[in-house]
């Protein structure tokens, strides 16, 4: 019996360990290869460890491609859309959670139902709308289609419903307006949920690829990190500094992994609460 339990325990560790190695190896290889010279990188059979780490690969990336631009664009877009999503989600979440109004049930159902529509249905109409508004060549093109998130409204509504209504009633008796209640009571008490939504939204936008791909094919000056890297990597055969792309890839991953490590518990709460990895 005891022996048998030990054996199952061993199998468990071997299984978890083997899959764990498979999970980590690609990341290990990425970092290792990003520090190789081109010769080492191209060697057959592949090398696992750079003989002399080429840290300057990370500097070269910035020299050979407008990586700083990509970085700046990605940050602006991710931050702007996160701020918009936080604001609109908090406003919508509050209205749906604590206010009584005509059409509430219907509007809430409608909001949830918009989540069923695949992003691909909106590519063409959104592109048309953006051109009509004359936004094609500025950040609004990348931010506005993501300014409202049904998921975010839902998440905050669930959270705000948990705030005792007594607090709001007490403030009302003291003569506070709806806006004072929203900014002085709701927003401060909703901070954990806002943090969850902020990190989900930032990572979602940082990693967003398809929409920026379309917009930047018309306005290359708006190129974000994923789009810039994809262009470089697909133009590979002709590119002589292939190992630099890997340094770029490390730089693409770094901000989101750092953010995730820093705000891990909020991120995980969002995933477990709703079951989705992104927005």
């Amino acid at each position: 019996m005891n022996k048998k339990r030990k054996v199952t325990g061993m199998i468990k560790y071997v299984f978890v360990g083997l899959v764990g190695v498979a999970m980590i190896t690609p990341f290990y290889w990425l970092i290792s290869a990003s520090l190789m010279t081109l010769q080492e990188f191209l060697s057959v059979p592949p090398k696992w460890i750079p003989s002399d780490p080429q840290w300057h690969n990370y500097v070269e990336v910035f020299k050979h491609v407008p990586f700083l631009n990509y970085y700046f664009n990605s940050f602006v877009v991710a931050i702007l859309s996160t701020v918009m999503v936080l604001l609109t989600s908090a406003m919508g979440g509050y209205a749906f959670a604590k206010l009584n109004f005509i059409g509430k049930k219907l509007l809430f159902k409608f909001t949830l139902s918009t989540m069923m529509f695949p992003a691909f249905l909106f590519l063409i109409p959104n592109f048309y709308i953006i051109t009509k508004f004359g936004w094609t060549s500025n950040y609004l093109a990348l931010v506005m289609p993501f300014a409202v998130s049904a998921y975010g409204i839902f998440l905050l509504r669930q959270f705000i419903m948990g705030i005792p209504s007594d607090l709001i009633d007490a403030a009302k008796i003291d003569g506070a307006s709806q806006f004072a209640i929203f900014f002085r009571i709701i927003i401060p008490l909703t901070q954990p949920a806002l943090a969850t939504l902020a990190i989900l939204s930032f990572i979602g936008q940082w990693n967003n690829f398809l929409w920026p791909l379309i917009i930047t094919s018309f306005s290359p000056e708006l190129t974000t990190v994923p789009v810039g890297l994809s262009k470089l990597s697909l133009a590979f055969s002709t590119y002589t500094n292939q190992n630099l792309i890997l340094a770029g890839t490390v730089l693409e991953i770094a901000p989101v992994v750092a953010l995730f490590l820093y705000l891990q518990r909020y991120y995980i709460k969002g995933i477990v609460l709703t079951g989705f990895g992104g927005i």
Partner: peptide, 10 residues
């Protein structure tokens, strides 16, 4: 949390 583009490249 890793961008799909980075995963694809790796």
């Amino acid at each position: 949390v890793t961008p799909a583009v980075a995963i694809g490249i790796i």
